[in-house]
C-alpha cells in the first residue's frame, strides 16, 4: 500500500513551485496576454513533454518560446525548417580535418536545452523524422558515436494552419510524440492595444533569468510525486477510452466521426500533464479539474477524424467537449 503524506507534499510543493509565479511574471513582461500559451509552456517544461504550437503568423509563438528560454539559464536554438533542410543540418555531421587527418564531430543545433523548430511542416519527412527521433530517444548518433542530449531538453515546434501549399504535414505517429498541441489564439482587444503601445514607444522589456536547469530537474521530480488517486486514474482512462469506443459512454453519435482514438501515450501524457497542472496550482494532488484543464491540449492531436466529420466541419475540440460532458466525474 502506497503511503503518501499529502500535507508534507503540499508544503514541499508550495516551496518548490514558488518559481512558477516569478517565471510567469517575467514572461508576462514580454508576452502580452496569451496566458494559456504561457501555462502550456510551463506544463510542457515541468512534465518533460514536447509541445506543438499552432497558430496563424504574428501571435508571439516564437517570442513566447524565446522568452521561456531566456528565463531559464539554458542553451536555446532556433531552427527554421525549410524544404531544403537536411538531417545533418539539424543533428550535426562528421567533418574531415586535414590538420589532424581525422573526422571530427560537428554537433548540430539540436544540442540545446530549448529547441524552437519553427514551421516544422515546411521540411520534408526525413528532417522531421531526425528531430522526432531525437525527441523520443533524447540522444543523437553521429557517425559511430551516440551523444546524449542535454537536460532539460524541450522541443517546441510551431506550425502554421494556413498556407498548406508546399508543406509536409506531420504524420499521426509523429504528432503523437508531442505531449501537448497548443492552439494559439488572437489576443484580446485590450491586450492588442497594449501591444501597439509597446511597439510605438519602442521599449521592449526583457525577461530576467530566474531559473537554472537544475531547478527544472528538481521541479520535475516533485511533479512526479504529485499524488494521483485511483479515481483520477480511472477518470483519465475513461476519457481516453471514450475517444476509442464512444458508444460505451452513451455517445453513439461520435462513432461515425472518429476514425481512430487516442493511444495509451495519451493516457500517460494526460496523467503527467495533470500532475504538472496541479503543481502549477500549488497542489500536491490531482483533482478532476486538472485533468480537464489539460485534456484539450493532450487529446486534440491524438484523435483522427473521418471524412464524414470533416464534411460536417467538426473538429477534434468538438469531440473532446462531447466526451468531457458525457464522462462522469469522480
Amino acid at each position: 500500500m502506497e503511503t503518501v503524506n499529502i500535507k508534507e507534499l503540499n508544503e514541499r510543493i508550495q516551496r518548490e513551485s514558488a518559481f512558477v509565479d516569478i517565471m510567469t511574471l517575467e514572461m508576462s513582461k514580454v508576452i502580452v496576454g496569451q496566458k494559456q500559451l504561457v501555462e502550456s509552456l510551463l506544463i510542457g517544461l515541468l512534465a518533460n513533454g514536447h509541445i506543438l504550437l499552432e497558430g496563424v503568423p504574428g501571435l508571439a509563438k516564437t517570442l513566447a518560446i524565446r522568452t521561456l528560454a531566456s528565463v531559464v539559464d539554458a542553451k536555446f536554438s532556433r531552427i527554421q525548417f525549410t524544404p531544403d533542410l537536411l538531417p545533418a543540418d539539424l543533428i550535426g555531421t562528421l567533418i574531415y580535418s586535414q590538420r589532424t587527418e581525422e573526422f571530427q564531430v560537428k554537433k548540430g543545433p539540436v544540442f540545446a536545452n530549448f529547441i524552437l523548430a519553427d514551421e516544422i511542416n515546411r521540411s520534408p519527412a526525413k528532417v522531421q523524422s531526425a528531430l522526432l527521433e531525437a525527441m523520443q530517444e533524447r540522444q543523437v548518433t553521429i557517425g559511430e558515436h551516440t551523444f546524449p542530449l542535454p537536460e532539460p531538453f524541450l522541443v517546441l515546434a510551431t506550425q502554421n494552419p494556413i498556407e498548406q501549399e508546399g508543406t509536409y504535414p506531420l504524420p499521426e505517429a509523429q504528432v503523437d510524440r508531442f505531449m501537448l498541441k497548443v492552439i494559439v489564439d488572437y489576443p484580446k482587444k485590450d491586450e492588442e492595444k497594449l501591444i501597439i503601445r509597446m511597439n510605438n514607444t519602442g521599449e521592449f522589456p526583457t525577461a530576467a533569468q530566474v531559473l537554472k536547469p537544475a531547478d527544472i530537474r528538481k521541479a520535475r521530480e516533485v511533479v512526479r510525486e504529485v499524488y494521483m488517486d485511483e479515481k483520477i486514474e480511472r477518470y483519465i482512462v475513461d476519457l481516453v477510452y471514450a475517444t476509442r469506443n464512444p458508444g460505451d459512454y452513451n455517445l453513439p453519435d461520435l462513432k461515425p466521426l472518429i476514425a481512430y482514438g487516442s493511444s495509451p501515450r495519451a493516457s500517460i501524457s494526460l496523467a503527467i500533464a495533470s500532475k504538472a497542472y496541479a503543481f502549477i496550482r500549488r497542489r500536491g494532488y490531482v483533482i478532476p479539474e486538472d485533468v480537464r484543464a489539460v485534456a484539450y491540449e493532450v487529446l486534440r492531436h491524438r484523435i483522427g477524424l473521418t471524412y464524414e466529420a470533416e464534411a460536417e466541419n467538426i473538429v477534434t475540440e468538438n469531440i473532446i467537449t462531447s466526451i468531457i460532458n458525457a464522462v462522469e466525474v469522480p
Binding site: 503518501v4 499529502i6 499524488y227 488517486d229 479515481k231 483520477i232 497542489r283 500536491g284 494532488y285 490531482v286 483533482i287 478532476p288 469522480p330
Partner: peptide
C-alpha cells in the same frame, strides 16, 4: 470532499 477523495486526506 475533494481532499478526502483525491488527496488521501
Amino acid at each position: 470532499g475533494d481532499l478526502a477523495k483525491f488527496a488521501k486526506y
